[in-house]
């Protein structure tokens, strides 16, 4: 009875989503599935792929560089994700203050997200230059002690990259900022009546109220972090001493420098699994912390 109307709406709905549907089949599903096939071949682009079963996966388990790259990537993630979450909220709180000239402040804070990575990488290599950089210049000025080697030091190179990522917090902070503006003023007002301090208000009102956005950003951060590539490719090339050989970078090297597209596909699959598991775990853990009360707008 209703089936005619339902049918019509289904057809209309499908028509509207058809661009995504086609794109999904052509640019996602097909490559996604064919990469399973490539991951089971020896393929160098020059000659046709040759089926080798699970050999790539077996090799991966024994490859010390895969282990190194995974270690580097997790190391980076462990610092970058929590720090950027806290820092992103702090910046958003700052930019949510009601002061004159906020447009200019927001622009200044957002600048690092706009500067092309190639350019900002150069500036950072320069700022953190052990001998001539400003940062070490300041360290010497205040502490009368030579600063560390930063990118040139295998123990600090990853942390240097984390620093750099905190500086590029603008995009994340902006999303937090937008969500801060949705927190009802009345909640703060009643807290004021109870004599709550600013810190208490942030912890007990702001953070729970924006927790869905925090989750959103953490997951986006997770996905981005595991694919971290550009800065390492441009600035350190994986060095010194493999200390910034991130997973995506090693994958890229295999695909495009070592003639191992098949192996790279297998690596990509492992990466997908890792991201999938991490995301699922995050979702699961989040159910206890995330507050979905205010979603009806």
């Amino acid at each position: 009875m209703a089936s005619a109307a339902v049918k019509k709406r289904r057809i209309q709905g499908l028509l509207f989503i058809s661009p995504w549907l086609i794109g999904f089949l052509a640019f996602t599903l097909y490559p996604f599935i064919s990469s399973i096939y490539y991951s089971m071949t020896a393929y160098d682009v020059i000659s046709p792929p040759e089926f080798i079963g699970l050999e790539n996966y077996v090799n991966m388990a024994e490859d010390p560089l895969v282990r190194k790259a995974l270690y580097n990537t997790f190391y980076y993630a462990v610092f970058a994700i929590p720090l950027s979450t806290i820092w992103g909220i702090c910046v958003a709180l700052l930019l949510n203050l009601k002061v004159r000239g906020m447009t200019l402040y927001r622009t200044l804070f957002y600048i690092p997200s706009i500067v092309p990575v190639v350019a900002s990488s150069m500036v950072w290599l320069w700022l953190l230059n052990p001998q001539y950089g400003i940062i070490n210049g300041l360290i010497y000025l205040f502490f009368n002690h030579p600063g560390p080697g930063w990118f040139a030091d295998p123990k600090l190179s990853k942390m240097s990259l984390v620093f750099m990522s905190l500086w590029g917090i603008g995009q994340t902070a902006l999303i937090y900022l937008a969500s801060l503006q949705d927190v009802p003023e009345s909640l703060y007002e009643s807290a004021d009546l109870d004599g709550a301090t600013t810190l208490q208000k942030v912890i007990h009102i702001t953070v729970p109220m924006i927790s869905p956005v925090i989750l959103f950003n953490v997951i986006m951060g997770l996905i981005g972090t595991f694919q971290y590539f550009t800065q390492a490719y441009i600035m350190t090339g994986g060095g010194p001493a493999d200390s910034t050989l991130f997973y995506a970078l090693y994958l890229y090297n295999n695909a495009f420098n070592f003639f191992k597209m098949g192996y790279a596909s297998a690596m990509a699959w492992l990466m997908f699994l890792v991201i999938f598991v991490m995301t699922a775990l995050t979702f699961k853990a989040s159910s206890r912390f995330v507050y979905y009360g205010g979603e009806t707008r």
Binding site: Q131, G149, F151, A152
Partner: peptide, 9 residues
């Protein structure tokens, strides 16, 4: 450390 700093410069 000094050598690396010098070299990076």
């Amino acid at each position: 450390t000094k050598l690396v700093a010098f070299e990076a410069g």
